[in-house]
């Protein structure tokens, strides 16, 4: 800071001074120390300072919040204009996230390098729009066809351009999302969700897809969807409302059962539901959705079963509930790591 003699300053002079402004608008230790000491030194100046402060703090402006629909619409449009030379990257990296892509890459490798070369030569520019959400954040997306997607925390959705000429509507999901797909007249443009190894063909409907851990799980709320393993386009499984299907790539099997769908879509309203869930699984969910690490001092804790319905929940609420339910100690190790011990 350059040295200035403030003793002759009028209120107006103070207002034009950057250091003074910094103190009023962004007080920190350094500027507070200076200005407090200065006022002690020149008590007769306190009134002038107060006047200047009043003026500055009177400057309030209405904040115009950009509507989420506009934000997404423009972002979607910008994607179509991106230079194909710009490599596609996600805003965040999670190693297991890309398992699906890696597997696809290995498969392509088996088909031969020639095929790969051809694929890259003929591949159209990636014009997919990417929507991402932060840890702990749910985002409501309005796709160009008026379908609504509620994107769960720390998730990403890529979408092809759904414009006039498009023959299909395709999206790729990492993480979790609830879909309310707009039915297309005469089913002219099918809507497909790609989740890891699974393709979900939508026939106008509401359903939840969870693909946080590379084991895509689909819960159908209403309507009809058909699932297909995407590498081997063989069996096509048609789901009924109220069903849950999880695909396990390691043994190429579908697990199918009847569920109450509310439990699986409660996250849309920031409610977390646990039903006889192991603490190991709870920790994994908190890691996916809030980016935190939960460590257990005692491995027997991992198998403890936890049941709770937590409204307006985030990781802190869940951890506090666990602490009370099992009478355990909870310690925050650093910003993102928590230790649970008996």
């Amino acid at each position: 800071m350059e040295w200035k003699d403030y003793t002759d300053f009028t209120a107006t002079d103070f207002l034009a001074d950057s250091f003074f402004m910094e103190w009023v608008l962004h007080p920190d230790e350094e500027n507070c120390a200076f200005w407090e000491a200065w006022q002690q030194h020149y008590p007769e100046k306190q009134a002038v300072i107060a006047a200047a402060r009043t003026m500055l703090s009177s400057l309030e402006y209405e904040k115009h919040q950009m509507p989420a629909e506009s934000y997404d619409r423009i972002w979607h449009a910008l994607h179509g204009k991106m230079d194909p030379a710009m490599p596609e990257t996600m805003r965040y990296e999670r190693s297991y996230h890309h398992r699906g892509w890696r597997r696809a890459a290995i498969l392509t490798g088996v088909c031969g390098l020639l095929a790969l070369g051809l694929y890259w030569l003929l591949k159209p520019a990636d014009k997919r729009a990417v929507y991402t959400s932060q840890f702990g954040e749910n985002r409501r997306l309005l796709l160009p066809d008026s379908s609504v997607v509620i994107l769960g925390p720390h998730s990403a959705l890529k979408a092809t351009a759904f414009d006039g000429e498009a023959k299909t509507r395709e999206v790729w999901l990492e993480g979790e999302a609830y879909f309310m797909v707009k039915h297309d007249a005469g089913n002219a443009r099918p809507f497909t969700v790609h989740a890891g190894d699974l393709d979900i063909e939508v026939l106008g409907t509401e359903f939840n897809v969870n693909n946080y851990n590379g084991r895509p799980q689909v819960v159908l709320h209403s309507g009809k969807v058909a699932l297909q393993q995407n590498a081997r386009k063989a069996a096509r499984i048609v789901m009924e409302p109220g069903e849950l299907i999880e695909y396990r790539a390691d043994n190429d099997r579908y697990v199918r059962r009847k569920v109450s769908t509310e439990k699986y879509v409660a996250w849309v309203n920031h409610t977390l539901v646990f039903e006889n869930t192991s603490l190991k699984e709870v920790a994994a969910q908190l890691h996916h959705k809030y980016g935190i690490q939960v460590q257990f001092a005692d491995s027997t804790l991992l198998q403890e079963r936890f049941s709770a319905t937590l409204k307006q929940a985030d990781h802190k609420v869940v951890l506090r509930a666990i602490q009370e339910a099992f009478s355990v100690q909870l310690q925050q190790q650093d910003g993102n790591t928590f230790l649970i011990s008996r």
Binding site: K63, H64, T89
Partner: peptide, 29 residues
């Protein structure tokens, strides 16, 4: 340098800021 990620970050930071500024300049959203 060609990073889409960086472009996305710029959009996320500045689209809302420009919107706020624009609304103060002009009433036509």
């Amino acid at each position: 340098g060609g990073s889409r990620e960086a472009f996305a970050a710029l959009y996320a930071s500045f689209a809302p800021l420009l919107y706020n500024y624009g609304c103060k300049e002009c009433a036509d959203r």
